[in-house]
Design a protein around this nucleic acid. Sequence first.
DNA 1: CTCTTATATTAGAATTATTCTAATATAGGG
DNA 2: CCCTATATTAGAATAATTCTAATATAAGAG
Lengths: 142, 142
Amino acid sequence: MENIISKYKDKGIRLTPQRIAILKFLEGNTDHPAAEDIYRKVRRRYPTISFATVYNTLQTLTEKGDLLEITIDPTRRHYDPNTTPHHHIVCTDCNEIMDVFVDYSDVLTLPSHVLREFKPVGNHVDFYGVCRKCQKKKGGEN
Amino acid sequence: MENIISKYKDKGIRLTPQRIAILKFLEGNTDHPAAEDIYRKVRRRYPTISFATVYNTLQTLTEKGDLLEITIDPTRRHYDPNTTPHHHIVCTDCNEIMDVFVDYSDVLTLPSHVLREFKPVGNHVDFYGVCRKCQKKKGGEN
DNA sequence: CTCTTATATTAGAATTATTCTAATATAGGG
DNA sequence: CCCTATATTAGAATAATTCTAATATAAGAG
Ligand SMILES: [Mn+2]
Ligand SMILES: [Mn+2]
Ligand SMILES: [Zn+2]
Ligand SMILES: [Zn+2]
């Protein structure tokens, strides 16, 4: 818990109570929260926190390389504190996002005509599927 | 050109001049336009067209399975009239999007603990890279 | 410990993409 | 040619994100 503080002290990011609360919420969080999820949680302890602070902090962390923006939900940006490269599977029904820790880099080869136009630097796979909960729901509907 | 009309007449989509203009703009378009790109183009011939018409038409086409929404740019939705499954590479600098027509399904295998939670229905790979134009620009900066 | 200041926080306004509304127009079948 | 279910429209509404400018504070220097 307290090592979050030492971890970020070095990085040259100024540690305010609001930021520490955000960092604690994100630490180990595997839910891929959106800004509002973070805002709602942190506001419980810091009722005057502003959305601007949440967005500013998320942007700072992203710039420092300690947070990833997930562009998988067209309606809002989600955030992922796990910056080791990995992929996601999303429920087409409820939008739940689950991690997929497999490195597909070796098999994701690009055709030469693409390589002629682009110098690749990374990849990310979005899997789509139906989560167990939604499979049950759908079964019941029929 | 005229076969667009016959193609969609069957599908039970009512063909208005505005819709035909949108369909013609999308036909074979490989630029992955956003709603505003479509609006701006079609407005040249139909100056009174509304954004609502553009969005309604895009939604209708998506529902009929003749258009794909591309969730790769966090600031706006892009659309792809090519509905055969394929992937994309995006320039991290200028956001240009290029198609990648390779079927990776066989090699994108999921771990069993993920398969226990999700019944997969599809996948999409986002490649990131730097396009030739931006490679030159960046080279010049240094 | 106190001072200083660069940086962070805040409320609220601004911006922007997308959706909604309700009045009007029209595609296309009969 | 008529009818009506469906499409178009202007503009308002909504919602995510960004911006602004005033105030507060973290943390390094002394
Ligand atoms: Mn993740
Ligand atoms: Mn494409
Ligand atoms: Zn689900
Ligand atoms: Zn580029």
